[in-house]
Design a protein around this nucleic acid. Structure first.
Lengths: 204, 204
DNA sequence: GTCTATAAACCGATAGAC
DNA sequence: GTCTATCGGTTTATAGAC
């Protein structure tokens, strides 16, 4: 009896989780496509197929909704980082992360809003779950960066801070969009071109 | 008499030009600070010190106003490119342009909106003066890129298109903002760090 | 041309019925 | 929890007096 009740509750919770995941999928795509400021709650509700008021039953504001989407994305990135083969050297791990990010970005499901100008930026900083994941990822990447610098595969005269920010920024580089718009390269080619210019520059 | 009339007219035109230049200064700064979507016409009018209705006597819409600002910026960039010492090699000319752009960006007066997500992007493409200047600058930079590739100072296995977009993108790289927010580096240091990672990568 | 005042549209968020 | 309908605020743009 109690087992059945527990199962029923769990099922309801699963349903809820499933619905909210579907919402976040839409938000992720819309954030990637239009950014926070241009995305409207009407639009989100319409694409999910529910009324706007229902949307607000799940997420109390546009800021929280977007922050939740960004947090889930952060979790996915951490998962990718964790699942990398241990046999890879630190530099290749870093390249793999950037490669995955650019691929996802080109696929249209990676919200790129590290633009300091988006009004969500401050909301993110006051959303603990996001900060937590961001810190975890930063620590992971920071370790690899230090490792690569010790091995001499990344310049050790370059501040680790600069390398870290550069990796984050290249993950949502507008160059990818422009090259895709140009139509001269396949997605795979664009990814490799960006990886190359990011790590090896344009002189070599 | 006709000379005096002509002079008076010219004076009025100068006044007009002066006023519109002051408006564009404000717009340039606000675009750099908040981007197109977050900048409001009320804000522009308030900072210029005129009524919003007056603003619309000078520029017929927010899009045209912003496009005019971007066009003036493009003209300034072309002017900088034209005034570079002829003694510089092609690579150093390209570096100088990026260096100037990042410096200006850090100074707070360079609108960075090549984010494909800004709603002004389409307006720019249908604003002939902007396209004209953009084409001129592209041609100038493209020439230097080809030259540098021939001299072997830029990789000739890298499509010129990629180098061009990369240069444009680095001119408004969010990495500069993050490093500035971090507060660990001076503006001059940030500029050199970005120039270095842009052209030489992070491995060397 | 500059102003005040306002129209028209849009958007985030909520009320209340079911 | 989902819906329809609407509020309240903001923003672009304009009307009309001076």
């Amino acid at each position: 009896m109690s087992g059945s009740a527990a199962k029923k509750l769990s099922f309801k919770q699963q349903q809820l989780q499933f619905r909210e995941n579907a919402i976040l999928d839409v938000v992720n795509r819309l954030l990637a496509k239009k950014g926070f400021d241009l995305m409207t709650m009407d639009e989100v509700a319409a694409e999910v197929g529910i009324a706007k008021a229902s949307l607000y039953k799940h997420f109390e504001s546009k800021e929280v909704l977007s922050a939740a989407s960004m947090t889930r994305l952060m979790e996915q990135t951490i998962a990718v980082a964790s699942s990398l083969p241990a046999s890879l050297c630190a530099l290749d791990k870093l390249k793999s992360i950037v490669r995955w990010a650019i691929q996802t970005h080109l696929g249209g499901t990676m919200p790129l809003l590290p633009s300091t100008r988006s009004s969500i930026q401050q909301a993110l900083l006051t959303y603990p779950p996001y900060i937590e994941k961001l810190s975890a990822l930063t620590e992971q990447l920071g370790g690899w960066i230090g490792e690569a610098q010790e091995h001499g595969t990344l310049s050790n005269t370059l501040p680790g801070e600069v390398i870290l920010y550069t990796i984050f920024a290249r993950s949502c580089d507008p160059v990818a969009d422009f090259l895709k718009m140009g139509g001269a390269f396949s997605d795979a080619e664009i990814v490799e071109l960006l990886i190359r210019t990011c790590f090896d520059g344009m002189t070599g």
